[in-house]
Amino acid sequence: MSERLLAEFPDEHAIAGAIRALRETDHRVLDAYTPFASHEVEDALARRPSRLPFAVFVGGMCGAGGAYFLQWYLVAHLYPLVVGGRPPHFPVAFVIITFEMGVLFASLTAVIATLVVGRLVRLTDDVQGTAGFETATRDRFWLAVMSHGPGEPLRELLGKLGASRVETPEVA
């Protein structure tokens, strides 16, 4: 019977060391919770880099392409009007709105994608109610680990690796 545990570490060196040590064991490191974007913790977890920028690229291209098409559709196709000798389809005049809409949709994609992949916009999650967890937004680093077999040996191991406290996660 495996058990999920949350351990609090006093600083980033301690948690990074613990992550590396645990990766050698059969226990499974689930995720870390840190008060800021810690490069050291990220390196220790060794996850592949975020692919979110690809989504942003696609979003931006859709925005720019859509804007160009819409401009052509409106002023060259639906209601062609020659002003100042410029032909109805005049690409130079379409550049700015195309650019602006590209940036707008790329930015919207970036933020929405972050909220979606980070599973944000929710009231609580499976760790927020844990005793003492509010230090995760202050100066402590928390690590979620799934034990291989019973939880007791993992509890001891986490203590040995420098955890200042080990808790069972709770929903707020």
Partner: peptide
């Protein structure tokens, strides 16, 4: 929005922040 400082969220967050900086520059 339920932010809890998960390392996997930070990873995407940082990528998004950098991309937004790049988009906002021009």
């Amino acid at each position: 929005l339920g932010w809890n400082g998960k390392a996997s969220t930070w990873r995407h967050y940082r990528a998004a922040y950098l991309v937004l900086a790049g988009l906002a520059t021009p």
